[in-house]
Design a protein around this nucleic acid. Structure first.
Lengths: 194, 194, 194, 194
DNA sequence: TATGAATGAGATTTCATTCAT
DNA sequence: TATGAATGAAATCTCATTCAT
């Protein structure tokens, strides 16, 4: 596509549109996700920048520090997990099944993407920022619990907090290779029954 | 100067570590524990060495790297926790009470010593080396489960692995401030009941 | 802000070292020089970094290791010595006087700055890199010899190499306190006469 | 030589004769010399101990520190050089030849045993301890100079100090690869002539 | 007295983060 | 705004030297 005549002779029109920055942010996030998947916590900032095809300064323009970048990766992955929960688990015949399916899905993701598990654990775990992702995750849990109570499959005093903690624990179980995590899911589900 | 026949004069059974080395190892471990307690993962190797009153080379002679030192601290703390479990929780009137007491004690320790929680989590979690500490921890769990089954307070198919995972998850819950950990203990205990 | 036509707008001739890096390199070099003067070979890298007001990483960015830093100090001092030779000794009434003055100046510098003498000796001695400093030093020697031969005050077969070796030896004499170095200068000068 | 009857039945007569220690000292010295020859200043104390077949503690029993060991090696080698000077150079037809032969021999040794040159330089150079070796070295120089003056081949005001400095310089010239050391010898010899 | 594991000071490497361009 | 060279704090390694056995 030949440039239109308007493209004047200025040596380089330094007007990088916002879209450009947005694209860079995405590239960095993707690269970080890949590097974390591959190398876990060993993933290095310069490597991530290189993999993203940007300078390291650009990484820091979009994320104030390494922890923030990792957190962003965790939240991104969390969002996908929650979306799965919303579309698939809420659609299960029973809430009990839905809850089990939700936890099992999380387990599978964490198991398959070991390098991301700390990031995901933090996304689900931390009560602090109560970010948007966190909120949506809690919505899914809340709906599952509510339905579960209606169906008599969940203790009346179960709370969203209990699910959050279960997920957080699940992440740790998998990250530490502490045992067969399917059994953990079973225990927790049983523990939430009336 | 006739010695009695028994004097097996092997030139040197010299395989006990030198007394001072043993002492220094202990000092380093103690110092690391203090620094971790106080500063968590920020704890620095030179600071630890200084606090222990030894050179940094000594720290590295006893522990090949920072991670190994932290792991050792975790195992030490784990040993104390397990000892508590053995002497107190096994002595509870019922196994159910014992198990709850065990998990609650762990929760209290982790809650009070946030800085150590990652180290302790790893000590309880990792299946890898199956070190001595790990073994003892499993003994306690095994006995609690066995008695629990006799008393009809624990599922017949519960295994030591389930307790290990519960502990590991508990550590993560507390480390991430994911919620009221007492509730988590309750859920897990309930999940192990028949 | 119209630039004059001459502003060749090549996107980035960005190969000049950053100004601050250049400044820091200089600071490190100066600090090293001071520390060497004061403590000789005892001078420590962390101390030098501190004296320079930079982190130790910066020292190692500019100089791959301690030896390289010391060598750089030696070359810097050598450059000053050579400059003295160029401006003062070449201006002496006779080449013989010039040569004596040159060696005497070197002796005085080495005598006054014991801590630097090994570095300076290496700078004058080593034939290896034939760096810029070395080249200039040889120019001075070459001119003194050439004039000396014209004036009949220097052997016809004397070479720059002979002066270099004399300087190198002088440094060793002073560093080892092997005797009254003025006598050494006299011997060498006599040895270069026809 | 069978032990005399007096050698009682004590399980192990812990009377290591002095000869034993003396032998160890010699072994350490030899090993150090070899390691220095092979690796120069890189030679490490533990390696030397291993090469000598003794514990590192034994090395330190005989030599207070690394510098002292190296100095001892230098003095040993110096002694051999001086012995050569005494037996060969003093026997030359003329003192001028003797002096040249002496310096040339030193040059050859230093050239062939680069790793030892710093040690040898120090042995010849340092005025400090005026040890026995040093004294003998000066005797040779003194005799060569005395005969040279008689023969009219050496300046009347030449002193032992001048020879010492020449040797010291020679060592530096060779150690630094500053040029063709034979030329240096020539210059110095010429410089000592009337 | 001989031994070598243990020690600690200092050199060097690593990498997250900053900042001049 | 994007870049990556530059920075510096902390980890880690390397020996010379000490000292319990």
């Amino acid at each position: 596509m030949p440039r239109t005549a308007a493209s004047a002779s200025s040596p380089a029109p330094r007007r990088r549109p916002r879209a450009d920055a947005e694209r860079n942010r995405g590239r960095v996030l993707d690269a970080a996700r890949e590097m974390l998947r591959a190398h876990g916590d060993e993933a290095q900032m310069p490597e991530i920048a290189r993999a993203a095809g940007v300078g390291i300064g650009t990484v820091y323009r979009h994320f104030p520090n390494r922890a923030a970048l990792i957190a962003a990766v965790g939240e991104q992955r969390q969002a996908e997990i929650v979306e799965f929960g919303r579309s698939r688990c809420l659609a299960c015949p029973t809430a009990a099944e839905g809850l089990a399916a939700y936890l099992t899905h999380i387990g599978e993701v964490l198991d398959a993407e070991r390098g991301l598990s700390a990031a995901i654990e933090a996304a689900f775990g931390s009560t602090e920022p109560a970010g948007e992702g966190r909120e949506r995750a809690e919505e899914v849990a809340a709906q599952l619990l509510a339905r579960g109570k209606e169906e008599g499959a969940v203790r009346a005093d179960a709370e969203v907090e209990d699910v959050v903690m279960a997920v957080c624990g699940l992440a740790a179980v998998i990250r530490n290779d502490a045992g067969d995590w399917h059994r953990y899911v079973r225990t927790v589900c049983a523990g939430l029954r009336p």
